[in-house]
Design a binder for these strands. Structure first.
Length: 316
DNA sequence: AATGCTACCTGCAGGC
DNA sequence: TGCCTGCAGGTAGCAT
């Protein structure tokens, strides 16, 4: 599941490889992947544009194009990018491309046989393909079809990002902002961390890791946190995201980098999908529970469950 | 205004 | 072996 570190990592890879390239044409294999504008307009407008820059905003990947346009890509659950070298996309149907890669995958990429990654598998789920003038081909693959690709005028960035909150590494994500965002919120802290208007880019993995960092139980009511707890959580969010980027992202199921390789942050998580394993801090077995229809992982010793004391007094 | 629930999708694990 | 059920999770949109 790509969250901020995974998107950041991909953005850096794309910046180093496709900035300066010109899109000859795009192909769309699943129309609902295109969120804006209508598919015919998307195809017509993207052709001939030069990629001038690659940015990340929250979990959005933004590619600035010539003519004051930009592409917004949100990978949601299973979206991935794969960059194919020149020579494979020209005049080939996707099926031919798939067959070619399948039979000669050796020289194309370095690739861990133990991972069992199949290029055929990736190509089968190609939803949008950008073919560059130099013959390279950037694929957006997405088995679950939740991912979105949009093309926008530069002036519509706010609309494209739809109320996204502050970047965790920017000054906008200040302790004062975070404190204000928690104030008066009766919802549990886990769900609040997943709210992209509070802080942009945190998903299920890093929300659980940040709560472990701050020794907070996921069901704690947001408005029950002390100033010290808020400060520690604020620090924890930045810390776990930073570590995630340093480790090249967390590969749990579907996440792969631009060349089809897996990130290694999964070797560094403390609680996410670690239920039944001993806590790295105290040895207590990590537990899993469902909060708001999604899983939360925590150490029951380090992150004690809230009791009556966490309910604000009537006088407050 | 804040919160809760569901649709969107498909692969896969688990049960029988 | 094969079918069926449920789960995974980010976000929009709708209901409360």
């Amino acid at each position: 599941m790509p969250e901020l570190p995974e998107v950041e990592y991909t953005a850096r890879q794309l910046r180093a490889s496709v900035v300066g390239a010109t899109i000859r044409e795009a192909l769309v294999f699943w129309e609902r992947t295109i969120s804006h504008p209508a598919v015919p307009d998307f195809l017509a407008e993207v052709a001939g544009r030069r990629i001038e820059g690659v940015r990340r905003r929250g979990k959005f990947l933004l590619m600035d194009l010539s003519g004051d346009l930009f592409l917004s890509i949100h990978r949601r659950m299973t979206g991935n990018f794969l960059l194919l070298p020149a020579g494979w996309s020209l005049d080939m149907s996707l099926k031919d491309l798939d067959a070619a890669l399948w039979s000669t995958k050796g020289p194309l990429f370095t690739f861990d046989p133990a991972s069992g990654l199949s290029y055929s598998h990736e190509l089968r789920y190609c939803r949008v393909c950008f073919i560059f003038e130099d013959g390279r081909c950037l694929l957006f693959t997405d088995p679950r079809k939740f991912g979105k690709v949009g093309l926008w005028g530069r002036a519509l960035e706010q609309e494209a990002l739809h109320g996204l909150g502050p970047e965790p590494f920017s000054e906008d994500f200040s302790l004062a902002h975070f404190t204000a965002a928690l104030s008066g919120r009766r919802t549990n802290i886990k769900q609040l961390l997943l709210d992209q208007t509070v802080v942009a880019g945190v998903g299920n993995i890093y929300a659980d890791e940040a709560l472990f960092y701050a020794s907070l139980h996921p069901t704690r009511r947001a408005d029950s946190l002390s100033d010290a707890e808020i400060a520690l959580l604020h620090k924890g969010i930045v810390e776990v995201l930073t570590r995630g980027i340093e480790h090249g992202g967390t590969s749990f199921n579907d996440y792969r980098d631009l060349w089809g390789e897996a990130g290694e942050n999964f070797n560094h998580v403390h609680v996410y999908h670690q239920d039944g394993k001993p806590c790295s801090r105290c040895g207590t077995l990590i537990e899993r529970m469902v909060i708001g229809q999604r899983s939360a992982h925590f150490c029951p010793h380090c992150q004690p469950a809230p009791l009556l004391a966490t309910i604000p007094l009537a006088s407050e």
